[in-house]
Write a protein that binds this DNA or RNA. Structure first.
Length: 216
DNA sequence: CACCAGGCAAGTA
DNA sequence: TACTTGCATGGT
């Protein structure tokens, strides 16, 4: 039996919380829109914005492409940064329309590195958003790193504080099988445990299910 | 009242 | 290259 803290932590989290059923979206378009809207924003607020778009029957590439910036911004207002995010969504939709005939699946069908760089070329799509879309939209085995991942693992001395996004992603992917279902659940579980036990200011408390993995 | 939330890009030195 | 700042609503 080979020691693997990263896999052991996954197992502990899954046993503690069970499946998280991510990504919470009914369609691929809803998923990618949610990925942009949730940037530095509480998911509760994103749900309101998505509900507005859904109620207006606008959650498809064509409708979002035709919609004016002003109207889009108004629909997504509850998600915050609404002018900025309206632009970012428009940039993403434009790429899909111009380069893939408005067919999101054609983007997802691209080779992995190609798909990732296409997403990163869009102004407003950074590494985390791109990787979220790859994993939760396209079902690719790409590990998603977010502030919670960094905070939880550095606070337990399992990652250096100054690790970059790529450093952290590499550490996870080098220590886990390339399995999209595993990456999906793991990222969602990290978000779950961080929300409960690893807030920005509070120190991790004794009942945190990860405390037995703390490394001196 | 202050603080935070499933980031990112532009500006500054 | 390495910091800093703007973007914004809504819940605790």
């Amino acid at each position: 039996m080979v020691e693997n803290t990263f896999l052991d932590i996954y197992t502990a989290l899954f046993e503690h919380y069970g499946p998280q059923n991510w990504w919470p979206a009914e369609t691929p378009v809803e998923m990618i829109v949610g990925a942009v809207l949730t940037q530095n924003t509480n998911w509760r607020n994103v749900r309101k914005a998505l509900a507005n778009l859904k109620a207006a029957n606008l959650l498809d590439i064509e409708s979002l492409d035709v919609l004016s910036h002003e109207k889009l911004a108004e629909y997504i207002r509850p998600a915050g940064y609404y002018n900025l995010k309206a632009k970012r969504l428009k940039n993403l939709i434009r790429m899909i329309v111009d380069d893939y005939h408005g067919d999101l699946q054609r983007l997802f069908d691209e080779e992995l590195d190609c798909c990732r760089s296409k997403l990163l070329q869009v102004n407003g799509i950074g590494e985390e958003t791109a990787d979220s879309i790859l994993l939760y939209g396209a079902g690719r085995p790409v590990f998603v790193v977010d502030t919670y991942t960094h905070r939880v693992f550095s606070r337990h001395n399992l990652l250096e504080e100054e690790c970059s996004y790529a450093d952290i992603q590499e550490r996870f992917m080098d220590n886990l099988p390339a399995d999209a279902a595993l990456y999906n659940e793991y990222h969602a579980l990290i978000v779950r445990v961080a929300k409960e036990y690893c807030k920005k200011t509070d120190p991790c408390c004794r009942s945190c299910p990860l405390n037995r993995f703390y490394e001196e």
